[in-house]
Every structure is written in structure tokens, then in C-alpha cells.
Design a protein around this nucleic acid. Structure first.
Lengths: 217, 217
DNA sequence: GTCTATAGAGCGATAGAC
DNA sequence: GTCTATCGCTCTATAGAC
């Protein structure tokens, strides 16, 4: 009955009991929200999956909603580091687009549950948490739009509208998480190459796959 | 209190009262499911929005789940007519891809609520209804994959994997509905051209927008 | 076919002992 | 910090009058 789940991503040591339990709650909620959807998961379910009683969860999070906001904000901060940080003002639009797309895809493949929640549960956000998350999402989308605009202005990209194109690319890449779960044979490297090519070619840019980069994920 | 909503899409005349009410339920459920999500909508909400009492809905649908399945199946049948019917075995892969993409986009823009539900509420399906819907979705995806495979084999398309590429394109086009609701300035024609170009170019195919086709939607 | 009324279950969140 | 117990609410679906 009491399933104390191991967290695959976060190594836990030298942590107070409070922090440890809070992290267990995050991990259980992440998995359950992604699997069943926020509305279909009860606080009881989260408590049961970490071998605790429902009431105790409120010692760590003020509400079920607070857990969702915590997961979404943390994920968006990691996404920024993965996709926006590599953008270089001195590089070409094509180099920046490939850097953004590779960072984004890498983050998606490494954090499938978080990405799935980010796409599916926007509607479940309420009040201040909703505004905070939306604002971070806008920043993210703006970064891609700026790259596309630069490539459009310089003639490097062939596209009709940078704003729509940014959304089209993000939608396409967002689908990775949906399909990745169901996917059998394709490796992460295969998926990455396919999507990088599709994204770059979608704006008329050329793409040649790396001949052999042995340590690519 | 009793808001008898007009349906914008389905003209209702010479219908029995039973059929009329059933259609009102469909329309109200479609709008509410798309707006709030299946799990967040109560039978009370649907009843209230058509000025009826909750219990009466069960004279027309066996369960809330049955309403969702009804909407999804009907939508998929219309999507097949829009995107798969125009495929011509004697045409080139490029012609078929453009026909499929245009039909798909047109269907998406004309049925934003249905498309949104189709993407967001797959997890809410249970039992037989889930299998029926999944099977129809697979057929749809297969049709696009076949076009891509043909273009890949003939050398007309430049892509890494037809199966992944089919999902990438469908994900990209599926995003239209998400953004379309929030969109201000762009017209359906602008959105269509931008997405047709992105989809065709994503497989390395050339694209020139139609110079002037006055009656395009 | 629609109504009123309600059964039966599950939900988020809180109170207070330890 | 975790437990037990429970409050107050909402939900889907049904029963039976009209």
C-alpha cells in the first residue's frame, strides 16, 4: 500500500524531511497530472502514491492548485535555460533558430511529463498563477518570433508571417511529447533530427543532418 | 435564466422536438467542453445553458461520456470528408499533400471547438468509445503518412522519417485551433497560407502562394 | 419529454490529537 | 510533520409524478 516512489531525476540527499516530502509530492503529482489530467487526479491519489495521508499534503502546499503552479513555473524556468539561453545576438538567424529548436526539443524529450502538463493544463490555472505562467510563456514565444523576424528581414527565411510561424513551430515541436510516449522504434536522436529538419525547412532554410556526432542525445 | 441558444451551424427546421433538443445538447456541450474541458463541465451546466433541467438530458444521451463520443465521432467523419476525400491516387504526392493540408486546415478553422476537443479530451474517453475514436484517428494519420511515403520514395520530398513527419505536420496544424481563438489581426486566409507554406516547406517542397484566388476562405 | 427530488459517491480542505 | 476524522460541497445518474 505504501509505495515510496524513487525519483528518477532529482537526487535527494542532505535534505530535511520537509524538503524530501515536498519533492516526493512534486514527483507524484507530475506523473499523475500527466497521466490522468489535473481535474481527474485527487489529492488522495497523490497522497496514496507516496504512502501518506491526504491531509498532510497541506503542510507542504497550500492547495492542489499550488502544486500545479509550482510544477509549471519550474518547468518554464528550465525551458528558458534550455532554449533561450543559447541564443547569441551575434549569430545568424539560422544558427539561432537551430540552437533554439535543439534546446527546445532536448528539454521536451527530457521532461515529457512537464511538457505534457504545460500544454494540456493551461485551462486549469486560476488567478495569479495563471497570469504568472502566461507571462513566462509569452516571453518564450517572443524569443522565437524575434529570431524568425530577423531571418525574415535578412531574407534568410521564407515565411508568410513571423508571429503565426512561431506558433506553428511551437505547436509542431509540442507534439513531440504526445507522440514520444507512444513511440516504439524511434530513438530520441532520430526524433530530434526529424523535427530539427522539419522546423528549419518549414521556413525555407536548408538542413543537412550532422554526419556523425556520437554523443548526441 | 432560460437561454435558448441559436445554433450558428446547423439549421433546424422540420425536426421533431426530440431531435431539436438533442441537437441543442450537442451544441451546448461542444461549446462548454471546448471552453472549460470535459471534466470541468457538469451536466447541470449543459442543461442550464439550454434552459432545461439536468435529469432530462438522459432522455437523449445515456451518459455524459456518450455526448463526448458523439461529438468526437461526428467530427472525425467530417474531417475525413474534408481532408482524405480529395486525395487522388493519380495525382502527385505534392498535389495530394497540398490537398490534404488545405482540407485539414479548412476543417480546423470551420470547426475550432470540435478540433480543440479532439486534441484535448482523448484522455477523457473510456472503453468502447475510446477504441472507436482511436481507430478513426489512426486511419486519418495513415492517409497523411502514405502521401509522405510516396513523396519520399519518388524523391519529391526531403524528410527523415514519414511516420514522425506525419505526426509533426498534424501537431503543427492542430495548433491552429489553439492560436486561432486568441488571434486578432490575422484572417483565415492569412493563417491558411502561412500553414500551407510551412507544411509543404517542412518536407522540402516548393511553395508559391496563389497570386489571387478571390473566393478562398 | 420534461420536471422535482434525491440517492450514492467523491471531492478539496480543515481541525485537532499526537 | 503526520495522523484521524469530518465538514460542506459537487458530481453523475436514477426514480417517479405529470
Amino acid at each position: 500500500m505504501a509505495l515510496l516512489e524513487r525519483n528518477e531525476r532529482t537526487f535527494i540527499f542532505a535534505m530535511t524531511q520537509e524538503h524530501r516530502t515536498k519533492q516526493f509530492i512534486r514527483n507524484a503529482a507530475r506523473r499523475l497530472f500527466a497521466e490522468k489530467g489535473y481535474n481527474a487526479v485527487a489529492m488522495r491519489d497523490i497522497a496514496q502514491s507516496i504512502g501518506k495521508q491526504p491531509g498532510g499534503l497541506y503542510n507542504h502546499f497550500a492547495s492542489k492548485q499550488a502544486i500545479l503552479v509550482d510544477l509549471m513555473v519550474e518547468n518554464l524556468e528550465r525551458a528558458h535555460k534550455a532554449a533561450i539561453a543559447p541564443i547569441d545576438p551575434d549569430a545568424t538567424p539560422l544558427q539561432n533558430l537551430e540552437a533554439f529548436v535543439r534546446g527546445h526539443i532536448h528539454h521536451n524529450i527530457e521532461n515529457p511529463d512537464d511538457i505534457f502538463i504545460a500544454y494540456m493544463e493551461l485551462r486549469s490555472l486560476e488567478g495569479d498563477g495563471a497570469q504568472a505562467v502566461m507571462s513566462k510563456r509569452d516571453t518564450y514565444e517572443s524569443a522565437l518570433r524575434s529570431i524568425l523576424q530577423a531571418g525574415h528581414d535578412s531574407g534568410a527565411f521564407l515565411l508568410t508571417d513571423p508571429a503565426i510561424q512561431a506558433r506553428a513551430i511551437l505547436s509542431m515541436l509540442g507534439g513531440i511529447t504526445v507522440w514520444y510516449r507512444q513511440t516504439g522504434p524511434q530513438s530520441p536522436a532520430d526524433i530530434t533530427e526529424c523535427y530539427v529538419r522539419a522546423a528549419l525547412q518549414s521556413v525555407g532554410a536548408p538542413y543537412s543532418p550532422p554526419t556523425k556526432r556520437p554523443n548526441d542525445v
